[in-house]
Amino acid sequence: MLAEAKIFLDRWHGYMKKPDPALLDGLLAENASISSPAYFKPKQSKAYVAAILTAVNEGFEDFRYTKEWVDGREMILEFEARIGDTQLKGIDRITVDGEGRLQHIEVLIRPLNGLIALADHVKACLAKEAA
């Protein structure tokens, strides 16, 4: 495993266990982007990616990673979680830069009702933040 992938994964797992905005800021590259299952085109902005990841972490219950694949600076992290009574499974496909910071994350989630529950939660969080 490349050093930058290992550094990122160690820090990422620490953040996921104890979500702290200060930790997240250090994990994201300045040009970080996200491909969400709710939108066709990726969104690029460190602040936007941070807001989305923060909202997602606030909504997830019983979150746990179940598998991990790493190839160079690319990784796939399979997870399970719950939003209220809705169980979901998904993957985070992450690319890190040479500094070990998240450059891009693509999130895939199933089943559809899990995706809808998560999208509704994130939308409510972002609306509250904008108010």
Rank of each mutant, 00 (worst) to 15 (best):
P19E: 12
G59P: 00
N113Q: 12
M16R: 04
S45V: 00
D120W: 08
A32V: 08
S45K: 14
L53G: 01
P42M: 12
G100Q: 09
G98Y: 07
E78Q: 13
A124H: 13
F60G: 00
L77T: 08
A124K: 14
K43P: 05
I52S: 03
A47M: 02
H104M: 13
K67Q: 14
N113F: 10
P37E: 01
V107C: 06
E74M: 15
W12V: 01
A127M: 12
D120V: 03
E74T: 15
D120S: 09
F8E: 00
L118C: 12
K6C: 08
A119S: 12
L53F: 01
I76D: 13
E106K: 15
F79K: 15
A38L: 14
A47W: 01
V49K: 02
H121D: 03
V96C: 10
H13E: 09
I91M: 08
N113L: 11
S35H: 12
K128R: 10
P42R: 15
D62G: 11
I34Q: 07
H104V: 02
A50R: 01
M16S: 03
E106W: 15
L108M: 14
K17R: 14
N57V: 03
K128Q: 07
K43T: 02
K43W: 12
Q44W: 00
I116V: 13
A47Q: 04
F60S: 00
Q87H: 10
F8T: 01
A29D: 13
P19W: 02
V122G: 06
A38P: 07
Q103L: 15
I94D: 05
V122Y: 11
D25W: 10
D97Y: 02
H121M: 06
I105F: 00
V49W: 02
R64D: 03
I52G: 04
N31R: 13
A81P: 12
I105C: 02
K43I: 03
D62T: 08
D10P: 04
L27S: 15
G114R: 07
K41T: 05
L112K: 09
A124M: 08
P19G: 09
K43D: 11
A38V: 06
F40A: 15
K17T: 02
A124E: 05
L27C: 15
C125E: 08
W69I: 06
R11Q: 13
V122R: 07
I76N: 14
Q103F: 10
G59I: 00
F8I: 04
K67S: 12
K123N: 14
R93M: 11
A47G: 00
T86L: 15
S33R: 14
F79Y: 10
S45L: 09
L102D: 00
I109K: 05
Y65S: 02
I91K: 13
